[in-house]
Simulated assay, not measured.
Amino acid sequence: MDYGRVEEDWSHKLLAPSPSADGATFRPAGISAQGARTAARQMRTALELLEARMQTIEAQRLCPLDLHALAPVPQKILALGPDHPESLAWLWANWGTTWPVRHVEEITDQESPGSSAEGQASLALRFVAADWTPWRIIAAVRERWPELEFSLAVLPLVE
């Protein structure tokens, strides 16, 4: 998106005459050229921030190991907050870990400790988990999609 062009268009629209109810045109009272530029700049900034937030939300939604997408946390549990004992108990019972996996990234074949059979597609991910691995959700995914194969390896944290 060309934010500069959007800002300029908004400035012009704020300064342009508007039709009145009787068909005549009038210019809104009280807005100067500087005021129109300032308002347009503020709208541009708001649009840029909104778009950045939406990209962040989209990136989070596209996480390749989104435990919430695989086993959604009920709204009742979410409302309790992440440190509430009931929340922790639900996460442990359903995910096998007490917080979402973090720093999920795809790793290349050279970095991956496992290998797939010839002709099989594979995906290797590196992530950080709170309590070992999210073993309960992996068990649930294995049960739901038995044709998928999983290989887990504990790797040292790289600093």
Results as ranks from 00 to 15, higher is better:
85 P>G: 12
99 W>L: 14
96 G>Y: 10
89 A>F: 03
94 N>T: 10
111 E>W: 09
75 Q>C: 02
74 P>Y: 10
106 E>C: 04
122 S>M: 01
101 V>C: 04
80 L>H: 01
101 V>F: 02
110 Q>Y: 10
115 S>Q: 10
88 L>N: 07
121 A>W: 00
93 A>G: 12
125 L>I: 03
138 I>H: 11
121 A>R: 02
96 G>Q: 05
130 A>S: 09
139 A>K: 12
106 E>H: 14
80 L>F: 05
113 P>Q: 08
105 E>H: 06
96 G>A: 07
116 S>I: 00
73 V>F: 09
141 V>I: 15
112 S>Y: 03
133 T>W: 14
125 L>F: 06
82 P>Y: 05
123 L>V: 09
123 L>F: 10
118 E>C: 10
93 A>V: 07
126 R>V: 02
133 T>Y: 12
75 Q>E: 15
87 S>M: 04
96 G>P: 03
126 R>G: 03
118 E>K: 10
89 A>K: 15
139 A>Y: 12
85 P>M: 06
86 E>N: 07
85 P>L: 08
141 V>H: 09
88 L>P: 00
104 V>H: 00
138 I>V: 13
127 F>I: 00
109 D>A: 14
94 N>C: 07
125 L>D: 03
125 L>W: 02
96 G>M: 11
133 T>C: 03
129 A>M: 08
142 R>T: 12
104 V>P: 11
106 E>S: 14
121 A>S: 01
119 G>Q: 09
104 V>N: 03
81 G>C: 03
116 S>T: 11
81 G>T: 03
114 G>S: 14
84 H>R: 01
133 T>M: 03
142 R>C: 13
107 I>G: 02
121 A>D: 00
135 W>N: 00
136 R>I: 08
92 W>T: 04
71 A>V: 11
71 A>D: 09
124 A>M: 06
77 I>Y: 13
108 T>W: 05
118 E>R: 10
93 A>K: 13
123 L>K: 11
132 W>M: 01
109 D>Y: 05
105 E>V: 04
94 N>F: 07
73 V>Y: 04
115 S>P: 00
91 L>P: 00
130 A>I: 00
